[in-house]
Computed example of a mutant assay.
Amino acid sequence: MPILPAGPLSYGMQLPIQSQSAIYAEPWEAGATPADLAEIARTADRAGFGYLASCDHVAIPRRLAGAMSTVWYDPVATLAFLAGITERVLLMSHVAVVGLRHPLATAKQYATLDHLSGGRLILGVGAGHVREEFEALGADFDG
């Protein structure tokens, strides 16, 4: 097994507010505003955080709304907003459910975000797990 070279410790965070799953959201997030999200991002940027991460869901079905909530900001729009008000912190999709969207459109959105943020994007991708979300968008869950 290769040994990784020693380097500086880096830490980051899954952003609050932008996804409010009942599994991890704190009560204060329900009343939080975009200004609160911006302040958290600016503070993390100043404090030396390595990354800020944003989750991805388009449509939560009723059967999962109790556990997952229905508050899920769009990750591209959220990370673009944060790119414009931060300077150095990396911006991560955690994770982008790539099967929900056309791959060319997804590539264009994230490539634009990476370019406009000065190369600060970390693109994390996943397959997704909510069949109804795929069905609502006409995407192929099984494929």
Rank of each mutant, 00 (worst) to 15 (best):
Ala107Glu: 03
Leu37Arg: 05
Arg46Ile: 05
Val97Asn: 08
Thr70Tyr: 09
Arg46Met: 04
Ala83Gly: 08
Pro34Lys: 01
Arg62Leu: 10
Arg120Asn: 09
Ala38Met: 08
Cys55Met: 15
Gly50Glu: 01
Pro103Glu: 07
Ala44Gly: 14
Gly50Tyr: 06
Gly84Asn: 00
Ile122Cys: 04
Tyr73Ala: 13
Leu113Val: 02
Leu100Cys: 03
Thr106His: 08
Ala67Asp: 09
Arg46His: 09
Ala83Phe: 06
Ala65Ile: 12
Gly126Pro: 15
Ile85Pro: 06
Ala44Ser: 13
Ala30Asn: 04
Gly48Leu: 01
Ala77Pro: 02
Gly50Trp: 05
Val58Ser: 02
His94Thr: 15
His129Cys: 05
Glu39Tyr: 02
Asp45Thr: 13
His102Ile: 14
Gly48Asp: 07
Pro27Phe: 05
Gly128Asn: 10
Gly31Lys: 00
Val76Asn: 02
Thr70Cys: 10
Gly31Phe: 02
Val98Met: 13
Gly48Glu: 02
Leu91Asn: 06
Ala44Thr: 15
Phe49Glu: 09
Asp56Ser: 02
Leu52Arg: 09
Ala35Leu: 08
Leu37Ile: 07
Val97Phe: 06
Ala53Phe: 11
Ala111Asp: 00
Ala96Leu: 15
Trp28Asp: 03
Leu79Gln: 05
Thr43Trp: 15
Thr43His: 15
Pro27Leu: 01
Leu82Gly: 14
Leu91Met: 02
Ser93Met: 00
Ala47Ser: 13
Ala35Gln: 12
Ala47His: 11
His57Glu: 01
Thr33Leu: 00
Trp28Cys: 02
Arg120Lys: 07
